[in-house]
């Protein structure tokens, strides 16, 4: 593996090691993480698809890797996964565009 890049797929498997330098916070985080992804009011598959969408929005390669595998494993298909990413993209695009109302307000304020 090329060491001269910031991201290395092999590092994903080392995620748990972040606890080594701060065990207490690490343990609390991973307990919480595990609890969040358990089947609850939302199914495990729905949670995996939400995580997949968010992974794209925050553009985290580790998360995209992990939640693509997880979505497949939880029985999601390609169409569901792509729609989930579109939901993320729509919110991200919408978040940009809805701010255009500020631009419009400001422009109107400054214009004759």
């Amino acid at each position: 593996m090329n060491d001269s890049t910031y991201y290395n797929p092999a590092d994903l498997a080392k995620f748990g090691k972040i606890s080594e330098w701060q065990p207490e916070m690490g343990r609390k985080f991973f307990d919480y993480y595990g609890e969040v992804f358990k089947e609850g009011a939302l199914s495990e598959r729905e949670k995996a698809l939400i995580a997949l969408a968010v992974a794209h929005v925050v553009q985290c390669p580790y998360c995209i890797d992990a939640y693509t595998s997880d979505s497949l494993q939880k029985g999601a298909d390609e169409a569901q996964m792509m729609e989930a990413v579109h939901v993320g993209a729509a919110i991200k695009g919408g978040a940009t565009l809805v701010h255009a109302t500020m631009m419009m307000n400001k422009a109107k304020e400054l214009s004759m």
Partner: peptide, 20 residues
């Protein structure tokens, strides 16, 4: 019988059954 169409493990049997 569900088996993964690829290089990953099957998910939770009961939850897959519900979805199927």
């Amino acid at each position: 019988v569900y088996n993964p169409s690829g290089a990953f493990l099957p998910g939770n049997q009961l939850s897959l059954e519900r979805e199927f």
